[in-house]
């Protein structure tokens, strides 16, 4: 589930779905519900996790496996496409909100969770944060718009390393690469985000919105290409085999790439 508060122009949206805010149909519906009611007069959105484990561990692989297992094979591609289209809609809308959006990240920020964080205008990482794209292990690529968004922000060398190795990087490395702009001590992320929100409140709304629109555009062609490639790869046998391994794994460390 997700929860939000709204006070003096600031939304605080908190992800709180155990074990680590996996993104499935329920989370997607909650995010859509949030987006559909956003007050255009608001100036800041703070996006954070209320769970100790981290920001978000990515797509809900167990739900995905169940959904695909229950459906006839010829329905896999349409089912995946429907979910991907819906998630792209949510991610694009978050990305383009006429508010200053601040992501506060700690602990695990993997796969779809990383992609969600990348929709934010400013990322504040606590020192415990780790970022990675483990999707190749599943025979797919990140499908929630992550690579085009990362490419918008950082150099291609780091993207290739992350995409092709699946390894995770810490907050310090992410800051050095320009992926996050502020690193704070564990537990201090929300304080830093609220301070930024207070600063944002001082700005003229027209100038603030224009500045964001000027510097941050949707990489539409790449997002579309990513969606098509993702669906094509997801139709292959590698995804179902990897999902089965993940779901049936008794390894204590399934999240380690």
């Amino acid at each position: 589930m997700i929860d939000w508060t709204y006070s003096e122009g600031v939304y605080e949206l908190t992800l709180a779905t155990p074990p680590c805010n996996e993104i499935g149909t329920a989370m997607l519906a909650d995010l859509r519900r949030f987006l559909d009611q956003v007050d255009p007069g608001a100036h800041t959105l703070i996006l954070r996790s209320g769970l100790r484990q981290g920001f978000c561990a990515g797509a809900d692989l167990r739900e995905l496996y169940r959904g695909l297992s229950d459906a006839p094979k010829d329905q896999h591609a349409p089912q995946i496409r429907q979910f991907i289209d819906a998630i792209h809609g949510v991610m694009d809308d978050l990305d383009m909100l006429p508010l200053t959006t601040v992501g506060v990240v700690h602990g695990v920020c993997f796969g779809g969770g990383f992609e969600l964080a990348l929709t934010c205008d400013v990322l504040i990482a606590e020192k415990t944060a780790r970022f990675c794209f483990p999707e190749l292990r599943l025979g797919i690529i990140p499908g929630f718009g992550g690579i085009p968004r990362l490419r918008r922000d950082v150099g291609n060398g780091l993207i290739r390393d992350l995409l092709l190795s699946g390894r995770s990087i810490n907050a310090k490395k992410a800051q050095a690469a320009g992926l996050v702009s502020q690193v704070v001590a564990a537990g201090e992320g929300i304080t830093a985000a609220r301070a930024l929100a207070a600063q944002t409140a001082k700005f003229d709304p027209t100038a603030r919105k224009a500045a964001k629109a000027f510097i941050k555009q949707l990489p539409k062609d790449e997002l579309l290409a990513e969606r098509e490639l993702f669906v094509r790869l997801a139709e292959g046998p590698a995804l179902m085999a990897a999902l089965k391994r993940f779901v049936e794994s008794t390894d204590l460390r399934p999240y380690l790439p």
Partner: peptide
Amino acid sequence: FQAVELISDVEDEFDVELPD
């Protein structure tokens, strides 16, 4: 999840990068 935290602590303490 805790293992991920430990890796970050280790990297920070020793100023190294440890690919997973």
